[in-house]
């Protein structure tokens, strides 16, 4: 909160400290929908530029992290809509993940790897808003109230939508 107050009173360096503190959290959230690491870094940067513009609207009713996630959610969704070649994005992500995560994958058996690929493919095929919703649901340390706030919907609506997405994914997994 001190950094926010200092930023609002014109101290740009305080905002730099805020960015450094939260950049990993935002990056992890937006990484899933971006083609490459560089692409995700660009979206992360956009999130912080937008957050700076809207910082005066932060009233402290939600935590700063949740407020920032809400901006990240909206920026990520508009990024998905802008880059319409989602299929290609998925492929590029898969290739990069395979390349960077080869040491982890070596430990997995082939069945687990196949399941992973299948789920990734299913998640890639979800519409942008549903994809972000399920990402947030499984995102660390987020309560349902926070997920609803970030997505701009009521808690009950968020619960119903998440239930349907999970059901859809599980049906697709068992059918495969």
């Amino acid at each position: 909160m001190a950094d926010i107050q200092r930023t609002l009173s014109g101290d740009a360096r305080a905002y730099g400290a805020l960015v450094d503190k939260y950049q990993s959290l935002v990056f992890v959230l937006v990484r899933g929908i971006c083609k490459t690491t560089a692409d995700a870094q660009e979206v992360t940067q956009d999130v912080f530029l937008k957050a700076y513009e809207q910082l005066h609207t932060f009233k402290g009713t939600a935590s700063f992290r949740t407020w920032l996630y809400r901006i990240a959610y909206n920026t990520a969704i508009s990024h998905i809509r802008k880059t319409k070649s989602r299929g290609k994005a998925g492929e590029a992500y898969m290739q990069e993940v395979m390349h960077t995560g080869s040491s982890i994958d070596e430990e997995h058996d082939s069945e687990r790897e196949a399941k992973y690929d299948k789920i990734r493919q299913l998640v890639e095929e979800l519409p942008a808003a549903e994809r972000m919703l399920i990402e947030l649901y499984y995102y660390k340390e987020l309560k349902m109230e926070e997920v609803a706030y970030i997505c701009g919907m009521t808690v009950s609506n968020a619960k119903v939508r998440i239930f349907r997405i999970r059901q859809k994914l599980q049906e697709a997994m068992t059918a495969a």
Partner: peptide
């Protein structure tokens, strides 16, 4: 990833 605070 390197910190982007100052860059922002």
């Amino acid at each position: 990833i390197r910190p982007i605070g100052m860059h922002v």
